[in-house]
Amino acid sequence: MKHLINLTVNGQKMTVEVESQRTLLELLRDQLSFTGVKEGCGDGECGACTVLMDGQPVRSCLILAVEAQNTEILTIEGLAAGDGLHPLQQSFVKEGAVQCGFCTPGFILAAKALLDRHPHPTDQQIREAMGGHLCRCTGYETIFLAIKAAGSKRR
């Protein structure tokens, strides 16, 4: 069964045709080529497929594409304005919080949503926001420091 849906991805309004059984992850990656959205576990456990839907972090592997009707989606591709890096991306680079990079888009988008809600998050709030994201390279400490530094820069 096909559906025509309207949504906004990274500020761009669009109408796309999707099959009922397509996930939002598949729509974004395979149909729209936003390959910054990663499929890790496909079960909602790892956080790699995290995108922002109407400003809130969600697992795009656990949402049907058709459920994105009339929503605004932000992927890592839409985070920075122009050619520069977003402050969170700069902070991740500076702290060495990226190794293989597979989990990075999910962490950064979850961190953006956190900083939008709490511009100066506590350590506990940072850990809670990171809680559903797996990284097999960094040991998490540099990611924590990158988010913390980006949070304190906003003061």
């Binding site: 909602g44 697992r59 656990l62 994201h133």
Partner: peptide, 9 residues
């Protein structure tokens, strides 16, 4: 329960 992203849905 779950994590931020799961609790949202």
């Amino acid at each position: 329960m779950g994590c931020c992203e799961i609790r949202q849905r």
